[in-house]
Amino acid sequence: MYEAYFGLRQAPFSLTPDTGFFFRNEAHVEALQVLRLALEAGEGFIKVTGEVGTGKTLLCRLLLNTLDEAWVTAWVPNPYLDPDALRRAIADELRVPLGPSPRQHTVVKKLQERLIELAGQGRRVAVVIDEAQALSDEALEALRLLSNLETETRKLLHVVLFGQPELDERLARPGLRQLRQRIGFSYRLQPLDAEGVALYLQHRLAVAGYNGRPLFAPRALRRLHRASRGIPRLVNVLAHKALLLAYGRGLREVGEAEVALAVRDTEDAGAGARPARLRPPFIAAAALALVLAAVALWRQWGAA
């Protein structure tokens, strides 16, 4: 809506985990390095945790995109699976023919055969699970047992778990101590600091095609950092709404007032993370933005 107004080629603050917008901040670069080193070292289990919105799914996709042809990957984005369904999902990703209604023993046997086949080709296998905190205890135990598949010299299967901090709490339980002891490397993603938020905004705007003067005033940046707590997803939400407001008001710079209204309209923004109420000023500004966009389109059609 406001892209042409601010000289952008595309929307800069989409919530989809687009690797083209990857911001090489210290935490994510370090996490990616830890993942690559741990996999190359042959670790059976690797864990990355972080609060909601800190970029775990984006990091997951980056890992999948950066592994070379020596690796075969099985990506499980939906962990709400029972142990049998999880094993079948991994088998499907590894192109293991199972046939209709296979028994558990058959699935495990065919998986082992496929892993041995790939190892014979000099290839390694990584199972990457997003939102791993949603796995049941039984599914986690099934993963542990699958990781037992190995030759005399190396693991046949490596598992990377991406999850919210609740995953750490789950693994702290006595019943999962065997799996916890298998985790060779772990990493905790941290939110962005104030400088990181400013650089993050600048980076995403540049990727989207912006090359003008700073769009966010210094006071707006400070307010945005406090309200978002440095969580990239919240930064995206607030920045998008603030830009929409600036566009609706005919401004060329986002000020603290626009960020403050965006914060009021966003449930998880602010230190208290209180439920939001849609305020009349925001509604009026958003409505004005829609009117301006409609007028611009009408003028383009008329000129054509």
Rank of each mutant, 00 (worst) to 15 (best):
M1Y: 04
A4P: 04
A11R: 12
P12M: 06
D18Q: 10
T19Q: 08
F21W: 01
R24V: 10
H28F: 04
Q33H: 11
Q33L: 14
V34K: 13
V34P: 00
L37F: 09
L37M: 12
A38M: 08
L39R: 03
E40C: 05
A41R: 10
G42H: 04
V48Y: 11
E51L: 15
V52G: 00
T54F: 06
T54K: 13
K56R: 11
T57K: 07
L58T: 15
E69H: 08
A70E: 10
W71F: 12
T73Y: 05
W75R: 15
V76P: 07
P77G: 09
Y80D: 15
L81W: 07
P83S: 08
D84E: 13
L86F: 11
R87Q: 15
L94A: 12
V96K: 04
L98S: 07
L98G: 03
R103F: 04
R103M: 04
H105K: 12
T106I: 09
T106K: 08
V107G: 06
V108R: 14
K110G: 02
R114S: 11
R114I: 07
I116S: 06
E117M: 05
Q121H: 12
V127H: 13
V127E: 11
V127M: 09
E131S: 01
E131D: 14
E131H: 06
A132T: 01
Q133W: 08
A134S: 12
L135C: 10
S136K: 07
E141W: 10
R144Q: 10
R144C: 08
S147L: 01
N148R: 03
E150N: 03
E152N: 14
E152F: 05
R154W: 00
K155F: 00
K155G: 13
K155I: 04
L156Q: 04
L157D: 03
V159C: 09
V160Q: 07
P165T: 07
E166V: 12
E166A: 15
R170V: 14
L171R: 08
Q178M: 11
L179R: 08
Q181H: 14
Q181F: 06
I183C: 10
I183P: 10
D193P: 04
A194E: 13
G196K: 03
A198R: 09
Q202S: 12
H203R: 06
H203V: 02
R204N: 01
A208I: 06
G209H: 03
G209S: 09
Y210N: 09
N211Q: 14
G212T: 09
G212A: 11
R213F: 05
P214T: 14
L215N: 10
L215A: 09
A217M: 07
A217L: 08
A217N: 05
P218W: 01
A220I: 05
A220F: 04
L224K: 03
H225V: 03
H225D: 00
R229S: 11
R229Y: 00
I231M: 13
I231Y: 12
V235A: 00
V237A: 02
L243P: 01
L244V: 07
L245T: 08
G250H: 10
R252A: 12
E256C: 00
L261W: 02
A262S: 02
V263R: 02
E267C: 01
A269D: 00
A273R: 15
R274L: 15
R277F: 06
L278M: 06
P280D: 05
P281I: 04
F282P: 00
I283V: 13
L288H: 02
L292D: 01
A294Y: 01
V295S: 02
L297M: 12
R299I: 03
A303K: 10
A303E: 13
